[in-house]
Structure formats: C-alpha cells, structure tokens
Write a protein that binds this DNA or RNA. Structure first.
Length: 202
DNA sequence: CATTTGATGTTCT
DNA sequence: GAACATCAAATGC
C-alpha cells in the first residue's frame, strides 16, 4: 500500500503552457542525490512561471540569447541554475519545446527526506521553516549549485516525483522580487499552497 | 515587531 | 561599472 513515487517524465515539461505547468508543479516532490550523500527531497510548495516571450521579468525576455540563458531555449525537462546576488543558487525547471524560453522557478519546499543532510548543508541545528522557505535556501538544502545547469531532470541527480499526496489549495499571487519588470511584475504567476508554513514570505 | 544594510560574484553594458 | 528572480544580521521602534 505504499505510494509509488513516479518520476515525472519529459512530456510533462514540454507542454506549451508554462503557467499551467507551474501550477501543477506545486505539490510534487523535488529530489536530489548528490555524490555519496543521502537522497534529499521536499514537497514543492511555491513556484513562479517565467515566459521568454513578452515577459520582462524573464532572463531570456524578448529573444535575448546569451551564454547564461541558452539552456532555457533547450527542450523542457532540464535544470536551469544560476547565481543570484553573488551568493544564492536559484533552481529553475526548463519547460516547453526547443527555442522557446519558458522556465519555472522553485521558491520553497517542505522538507521530506534526508533531513539530517539538509540541516548540515544549511548549517542549522533544527528543522524549521527557515530551512527551505526561500529560493536560495532550497537549493542550499538540496545541494544544488550553478554547475548543475543543464542537468536532465529524468536522470538520477535531480528529479521530480509525483506522489498522490494530499497537499492543500493552490493560490496564485504576483511574483516576488521582480519589480523592475514594470507592468509584468504584477502578473499573478506565483503559485503556492495555501496556509502552508513552508511557503516563503516577503 | 519593521526596516535597513552588507555580503558577494557572474552577467551584461 | 551597474544590476541582480536573495539572505541574515543589525538597527530602530
């Protein structure tokens, strides 16, 4: 009667509606297995959608194609990890087909497996919301770093599982930290699980 | 409590 | 040289 963890496959990521995928991603389980360390995982409780076309908040807005953003143009199902403010590694899921620059930022998770390892990586002595309730904290707890950009999410380093687990109502709200995007910053493309204590707050 | 500020490094102009 | 999808510690009530 165990739940059968099912790894999400490529077809899930390659659909065209990044906002819809972003919504569906909440409640799924993000997992990592880095080197010899134990598997770590957590329920995705907060995501944000970024669309390459006509979205100023996206790094690859308006066809901007650089060394950093090229992975977003790859077919869906890859990881896009980049360094923010010189310190934090932010993890995104690349979606849609080749040459379309859509991606989803994972902003917060609810710790599930490998708690001891995550605490060690975060240099924390207790499991509390502080452990993973922000995009930079998630990646640190899961051991994700920028060199993992381009990692295939159907591989055995970073992947996402679909467990039919009850989570909660999904609510949408404006994206965070993208005020520079003008009108586009107001788009309600952030999805989170209602009343979940692991969701980030501003 | 709320608000401010320093840390930090890669990317792009 | 400026900007940046952030965090934690310090300061001000």
């Amino acid at each position: 009667m165990s739940e059968t963890p099912k790894k999400i496959e490529t077809s899930f990521y390659r659909r065209s509606d990044v906002v819809q995928i972003s919504r569906e991603l909440t409640g799924k389980v993000l997992c990592t297995k880095i080197g010899d360390e134990p598997k770590t995982s957590g329920i995705i409780v907060e995501t944000e959608a970024y669309c390459g076309r006509n979205d100023k908040a996206c790094h690859a807005n308006n066809g901007l194609r650089t060394e950093r953003t090229q992975v977003i143009y790859q077919p869906g199902g890859l990881a896009y990890v980049y360094l923010c403010y010189g310190i934090h590694h932010l993890f995104n899921v690349v979606t849609n087909v080749k040459d379309t620059a859509d991606a989803i930022l994972v902003r917060a998770i609810e710790p599930l497996e490998g708690l001891k390892t995550m605490k060690k990586r975060r240099n924390a002595d207790a499991v509390s919301p502080k452990l993973t309730n922000g995009p930079g904290k998630c990646t640190q707890a899961l051991g994700i770093i920028t060199s993992m950009t381009g990692t295939d999410l159907t591989g055995d380093t970073i992947w996402i599982e679909d467990r039919a687990k009850h989570t909660g109502e999904i609510v949408s709200s404006p994206r965070i930290g993208v005020d520079y995007a003008g009108e586009h910053a107001k788009r309600a493309w952030r999805f989170s699980i209602k009343s979940n204590r692991w969701v980030s707050h501003r």
